[in-house]
Amino acid sequence: MTNPISINEVPVNPEIIQDEYLIYKKPSTLTDKPFHYCPGCGHSTVHKLLMELVEEIGIQSDIIGVAPVGCSVFAYDYMDIDMQEAAHGRALAVATGVRRMLPDKYVFTYQGDGDLAAIGTAETIHAANRGENILCIFINNGVYGMTSGQMAPTTLAGMVSTTSPFGRDVKTQGYPLKIGELLSLLPGVAYVTRQSVHTPTNVRKTKKALKQALEYQKQGLGFCMVEVVSNCPSNWKMTPLESLKFVEEKMIPFYPLGDLKVPGGK
């Protein structure tokens, strides 16, 4: 096998490097460190969308992020902003501390389903119920990724994981938890939306939702959650393409996309 060539070694014609030809670039708010995420994983996409917004809105100096424990534990390696690493499940308690000390800044947490919907359920519900003016970005791929494929609270019924090797049996292992629907019942919650990043259209919608949530935070409307139904090719034992198909055919029917709560009621 030949070594892959570095991007810097790709021959380019200097004449075409002009602003008017620029159609895509990495946001300056993402560091140069290559993502550790598996090929095809949705995390990198959501990281990029968030950092694009930080650049576009111009809030690099005004935003503090809280990383979870899980695959995105190293989120702070990639996001070129002030960040804190929380204990497993505690990101929204940590973010509450930040929010209360820095009422004029943007504050977000970035959490997976194990972190937010299992070990951190109490912190999640109470931060939402207090109406903390925080953006919670919730990546739901129905599996514990970092610990390599155990059942999550969001694992679909019948879905195989390393701790539900015969498929999740809801009678003994409980039902998949729809945390978005749960939170949308709370009066302190301003905005809950469920999006995905499995197609270019959905990527654009997710970016729009994140932008909307940051706008609501600026207005001080309260707790916002953008849930992103995502994939996990490695732990689902699928190719990236198969995993996107699984999102479309299995995940989204159970976790339907769209707004669950918007300011002013729905």
């Binding site: 503090i64 809280v66 804190q84 929380a86 204990a87 505690r90 308690a93 940590v94 973010a95 509450t96 501390g97 930040v98 929010r99 209360r100 000390m101 820095l102 109490a122 912190e123 109470h126």
Partner: peptide, 26 residues
Amino acid sequence: MVVLQAESEVASINMIYGAAATGRRV
């Protein structure tokens, strides 16, 4: 001064973590 009653001691100490990390006295 901010005074907040948390939902548990698990939450309150993690609020302390986040707040202390902003350099404030907590």
